[in-house]
Design a protein around this nucleic acid. Structure first.
Length: 556
RNA sequence: GCGCCUGUAGCUCAGUAGGAUUAGAGCAUGGGAUUUCUAAUCCCAGGGUCGCAGGUUCGAAUCCUGCCAGGCGCGCCA
């Protein structure tokens, strides 16, 4: 364990592989390492079962187990029902704390240095952000933080779909609403946007441009101006909501910044690769060459807009790579899952490895009100606005809630339940750990301003490691599983939430049966061990909270 | 019809590569803990044929096949 420490799980994994190699076994095998269900042990592995499956004899297995047993950090090894159970020694405590102090309080761990562009939310500027956008915003924010934690450069981008048939329909609807609020006859098209929010916008515009009954007819003829005003308004609305929600983007990329000539060049490029053909006056891209279900139209033969959204999207992908990003992440809503193959096909056609373009699909958010499911639709005007939710529930709790399910699971959002969250919710359970730790530290140090680094270093110099008991070692091991969970959260930030809940549970249990400031009952040496523990836990919680962009109160 | 996702306790969900004593949490329900660093906490109890049926395996909630149920998608919309 010379290199910087990652986690006990990774440590065991490497140890097993090294020992196997030293015994002359070089075959690539997969085995599990998990917490042991036998309470006496910390970790358990099926590696022996796997080895037997590979026709390894008992003689070799005994040699293997004996070598593991000799390892400095391992106190006890036992085979139970074919599983290899491991108990770590107290030495691990000292080792991990040393790493903790040497490598910056566990606030980051560099293993990769890609330039990553992550695109998420990208809601159409046809209305305010809703609850579903909240899930994507929370997911993208935390994933970005985790990518940074591991050493990547991360750029958060929001794609503004300000071109296309939908936008034209939106402008049509806005014009009708302007007529309406100025007492003219009006008629919102069947496939237009019917939400009341457009009426509010029409009132806003009417005030801004001093529209009266006399000039309204002229005003609605100025489609260019209305277009510009509408897009600006809704993009700004999105930015405002996201700021309140705590999600800040590095860039808002407008679809309209992609010009006709860019698209012409793109089509020419694809044509030279033999990936373009014409049919019924439309230009199609052979995405089936790359595994898509069917070829896709790039230039249309009908409609108000010449190129499809997909044509812009291919150019957008090209644009992203041309800005020297070597990894793209695109987060899509569940209604766009049919789009994945198309985007992968486009990435391949542009001579990039499709693996460098990760496409993540989030499952839906079901909004439930009084036991009735509502179906959200922007066009029909049925919406649960993100702004409304933020008014009722703090952004921290809300973002935490959005990450409390795996990305593939539908998330049920009960309006009544959300209101209740203000008083009773799983985030408070974790924040309470932090408050309790700080309460204890305040009692001991008489201040909230504590130099964690200095205090831990001082205590480590006088610590009697032999006095650490199994319960202390256990909660310590549970705490440092944080690294494994951060690693898992590259796949799904849910695992970060999970660590918080698990650790809080363990801490509250420990707290209830073990006093930290126990000098009078158990002596100063015992107290020092527990002080180091909670100082360390405080730092871990701070790292954890910064990855989730959550604030931790010192008092509750 | 085809594709993707889901089906586990009354409710909401974990179980990430097929593994282990008794399939786990939270909420809800019932009972208990406060001379003790914050009770926004802890402890105990009840509650499950893991959608159904086959199959593979030493071993299946997990993999395969079929079926049933729900959601979403299958535009020259985005």
């Amino acid at each position: 364990m010379n290199q910087s420490f990652f986690s006990l799980k990774k440590y065991l994994e490497n140890l097993f592989l090294e020992v196997l190699k030293s015994l002359g076994f070089n075959k690539d095998i997969k085995f599990s390492i998990d917490r042991s269900p036998v309470s006496e042990f910390h970790y358990g592995s099926n590696i022996l079962l796997i080895l037997r499956k590979n026709n390894i004899d008992d003689d070799f297995i005994n040699k293997f187990v004996n070598k593991i047993r000799l390892c400095y950090f391992i106190e006890k090894v036992e085979q139970i029902k074919g599983f290899l159970n491991i108990k770590f020694s107290k030495e691990i405590f000292k080792f991990v704390l040393n790493d903790f102090i040497t490598n910056g309080l566990w606030s980051s761990y560099k293993i990769s240095n890609s330039k990553v562009l992550i695109e998420f939310v990208s809601a159409n500027p046809t209305g305010p952000l809703n609850a579903v956008n909240g899930r994507a915003a929370s997911f993208g924010l935390v994933l970005s933080n985790v990518l940074k934690y591991f050493g990547n450069y991360v750029f958060k981008e929001y794609y503004v779909n300000d071109v296309g048939e939908q936008i034209e329909k939106l402008i049509d609807s806005v014009i009708q609403r302007i007529r309406e609020v100025n007492n003219l006859d009006f008629n919102i098209p069947e496939d237009g946007y019917k939400g009341e929010y457009l009426k509010d916008f029409a009132i806003y515009l009417s005030t801004k441009f001093n529209i009266t009954k006399d000039n309204v007819i002229d005003f609605v003829k100025n489609r260019e101006l209305i277009y510009k005003e509408t897009i600006d308004y809704f993009v700004q609305l999105h930015i405002n909501t996201l700021n309140k929600f705590g999600v800040i983007f590095d860039n808002f990329f407008k679809q309209s910044s992609i010009k006709q000539e860019d698209l012409l060049n793109l089509i020419k490029y694809l044509e030279e690769k033999g990936l373009i053909y014409e049919e019924n006056n439309a230009i199609l891209f052979r995405s089936t060459y790359f595994g898509d279900d069917k070829d896709r139209v790039l230039r249309k033969s009908v409609g108000k807009v010449e190129y499809t959204y997909f044509a812009y999207d291919i150019e957008y992908i090209r644009n992203k790579f041309s800005r020297n990003f070597n990894k793209l992440i695109t987060i899509l809503g569940p209604d766009h899952h049919g789009y994945v193959n198309r985007l992968k096909a486009a990435t391949s056609a542009l001579n990039h490895n499709p693996d460098d373009h990760e496409i993540i699909v989030l499952q839906i958010v079901n909004v439930v009100m009084k036991d009735k499911a509502l179906r959200m639709s922007k066009r029909k005007g049925i919406l649960v606005l993100l702004d409304e939710l933020i008014e009722n529930v703090s952004p921290d709790i809300l973002r935490f809630f959005f990450l409390s399910r795996l990305k593939d699971s539908p998330l049920e959002l009960d309006i009544e339940f959300m209101k209740k969250l203000t008083f009773d919710n799983p985030l408070y359970y974790i924040q309470y750990v932090y408050a309790r730790i700080n309460g204890i530290l305040r009692n001991f140090y008489n201040t909230d301003e504590i130099d964690l680094f200095k205090e831990i270093t001082n205590l480590m110099n006088i610590l009697k490691y032999e006095l650490i008991d199994d319960k202390e070692l256990e909660i310590f091991i549970q705490a440092i599983e944080l690294r494994d969970h951060i690693y898992s959260s590259l796949n799904d930030p849910y695992y970060l939430v999970l660590w918080g809940s698990n650790f809080a549970k363990a801490f509250h249990q420990f707290y209830n049966s073990n006093k930290i400031l126990c000098e009078d009952e158990l002596g100063k040496d015992k107290q020092n061990i527990r002080l180091v523990l909670i100082l360390f836990f405080r730092s871990l919680l701070e790292s954890w909270a910064s990855l989730l962009n959550i604030t931790l109160p010192k008092k509750m």
